[in-house]
Amino acid sequence: MELDPRGQRFAAALTSVVLIVVLITGSGWLALAQTVIFAVAAVDPRRSPYAYLYRLLVLPRLGPPSEREPVAPVRFAQSVGFTFLLLAAFGYLTGLTALGLIFAAFALLAAFLNAAFGLCLGCEAYLAIRRLTARTT
């Protein structure tokens, strides 16, 4: 199974907006909602709410993709996002605001790089880990 990379950039753009609001408001509940979206996308990126919005609103205007990307790196990246936002939500909801701020900011950096430049840090980390583990076996 492969994915339309434009859909991943769209999801990263929406995630960036959500994370900016989280950082401005300090809302642990909004961070938790984004955590749920990451959890769904980590299982199957095609089933996340952002993927549905992309297919409904954006894809019909763009047409079919000229390239595709494998799903495994994207799932890994979504798992990393899940972990970061879970820690951010925990921080904000328990009064450890610095923890929430740090992990929300890291997640925003990664999401923004993907949205603006197509650079998926989680995907790159996945590929680097695969290369390292392939050499040791």
Rank of each mutant, 00 (worst) to 15 (best):
A107E: 05
Y50T: 13
A107L: 03
A111W: 11
P49F: 09
L57P: 07
L56D: 15
F112K: 11
F90D: 03
F82W: 08
G95Y: 13
P49G: 11
T97M: 13
A72D: 04
R55P: 12
I37D: 09
R46K: 04
L99Q: 09
S79G: 14
F117G: 07
P70W: 01
A111Y: 08
L85H: 04
G63E: 13
A116H: 08
L96V: 13
A33K: 02
A89V: 02
F38D: 02
L108H: 00
R46E: 03
L57G: 12
P64C: 10
A33Q: 00
L93Y: 07
P60Q: 12
Y54I: 12
L87N: 02
L57A: 15
R68Y: 11
V58S: 03
V74P: 02
F103R: 00
L32S: 07
F38R: 04
L108Y: 01
A88V: 00
L113N: 09
P60Y: 08
R46D: 02
E67N: 09
V43P: 01
A39Y: 05
A33M: 04
P60G: 11
Y54P: 10
V71K: 11
A115R: 09
V43N: 05
T94D: 11
N114Y: 10
L56K: 15
A116Q: 07
V74G: 03
E67M: 06
G95M: 14
V71A: 05
F38Q: 09
V80K: 05
F106I: 12
L87D: 01
